[in-house]
Design a protein around this nucleic acid. Structure first.
Lengths: 147, 147
DNA sequence: AGCAAAATCACCCGAAAGTATGACGACAGA
DNA sequence: TCTGTCGTCATACTTTCGGGTGATTTTGCT
């Protein structure tokens, strides 16, 4: 900004000097005062416009463009977990059920017996109030336990 | 834009007229020419700045803002439906399975026998390559058949 | 009208899922 | 040390699912 003021001042001073020289030649001429004024007017108008442009260059209109975010990261609702009394293991099994695995497959994946998976899922269904595994999956999603 | 030019012209003319009047009083004064010039300079500089401001087209800066897309409207993938040969009824039943209903409940809701639901779901599983209803639900979601 | 696809239903059978009950060890916290 | 929770497993029983087959009716399209 200081640079602008400096340029402005210098231009003004220079103009005065130039006019001083010019003055002697044209002052005698009729209507020279109008020419003189016009000259200054044009020059300063141009300068003003230039300054105005410089000053407003930074005024930017921010346009917010909303883009559908790819995917909600999904955060496990820990609170709900305790609220319902669902244990880690049960949650783990719920996730596997949701992925479409059978009790046997889940048991193999977790290195436990199929019966264990059944007891876990049974207790899980109780806590969720589900009668079927498909319902448990649906409820689990609604409750924020699984993505 | 025409308005601006008009204002500009009028201002200039008016100024000339005013100066004409003022001229007679100050022309006799020493250095009046500098005052005169300064006056014009200041006025036109101001005018120029104002014009500059007006003329400056405000730059639009597009800010891409990621917003957690309220809700993906979900559009049924009709193409996939035909591609897999899944019928409307089967799709309907898939949706009800996904909501956690039993075959019996689905039958009651659709006013058909449980057996009918079973045949529909059986054929559906074939087409989806699913062995269990939970898996069918999972696949259905991946394939864009259900939300 | 006539064909093909879709929808409906039945019956059987085996597999998977779900319920109920009991039991045992590990581990944390009072 | 005692208690409660969690995870593990088993057995027995009921219900639900899923597969296979066959059949009839509806419906959409030419």
């Amino acid at each position: 900004m200081k640079k602008h003021i400096l340029i402005y001042g210098l231009t003004g001073g220079l103009l005065i000097a130039v006019l001083r020289l010019v003055e002697y030649r044209f002052l005698v001429v009729e209507h020279s005062i109008e020419i003189y004024g016009s000259l200054i007017a044009v020059l300063f108008a141009g300068l003003g416009i230039w300054l105005g442009l410089k000053l407003t260059r930074k005024k930017e209109v921010v346009v917010v463009k909303e883009v559908p975010a790819a995917a909600a990261p999904f955060a496990l609702d820990e609170g709900r977990l305790r609220e319902l009394g669902v244990t880690r293991r049960e949650l783990e099994i719920l996730a596997l059920i949701a992925s479409g695995m059978s009790n046997r497959e889940i048991g193999e994946k977790l290195f436990v017996s199929e019966n264990t998976v059944k007891t876990h899922s049974s207790r899980l269904f109780d806590k969720l109030g589900a009668k079927r595994r498909t319902q448990a999956v649906q409820l689990g999603k609604e409750l924020g336990l699984i993505p």
